[in-house]
């Protein structure tokens, strides 16, 4: 069950660390990126099953990065969960339109995040 590769993209180092610690504790193989460029570079070699994507990133934002990943066959199958603290009307729709598979409003709940991630990885395993 554990050991599945997950990428976290977040420009806030402390939040990035929190998510990383939480998921690493669950036994996932976690890698992190502070912006979209680093994420793209990492994806050359790292093939995660799921990406936790912060929407607001410096430079290319999370929505754009998701659009790019979903446009390429090699990365299309990666599940993307949008992470945002900006819970305004339309955010979820925007995330879905960009191709995100899920949406989590910050602050993340340390109890529910591992559950959401596990849930998201389940059908991928079955498929």
């Amino acid at each position: 069950m554990a050991g599945e590769p997950i990428l976290i993209v977040d420009d806030n180092p402390v939040n990035l660390k929190l998510t990383r610690v939480l998921l690493a504790q669950e036994g996932y193989d976690v890698k992190t990126a502070g912006d979209a460029e680093i994420a793209l570079e990492l994806l050359q070699t790292f093939k995660p099953k799921l990406i936790l994507m912060d929407i607001q990133l410096p430079g290319m934002d999370g929505l754009e990065l998701t659009r790019r990943l979903k446009a390429v066959p090699e990365t299309r199958s990666i599940k993307v969960i949008a992470l945002t603290a900006f819970a305004m009307k339309g955010d979820e729709e925007k995330a879905r339109a960009a191709g995100c598979d899920g949406y989590i409003a910050k602050p993340i709940d340390t109890k529910s995040l591992p559950q959401v991630v596990a849930e998201m990885l389940k059908p991928a395993k079955e498929a």
Binding site: N12, V14, N15, K17, L18, V21, L22, Q25, A85, F86, M88, K106, P107, I108, T110, K111
Partner: peptide
Amino acid sequence: LANMSHELRTPLNAIIGFSELMYNEKV
């Protein structure tokens, strides 16, 4: 106000998250 809420929630996310981790003795 929306931006401010966002800015306030981001550090709070870490405070709550790490407190929960420790409180729940995950570490």
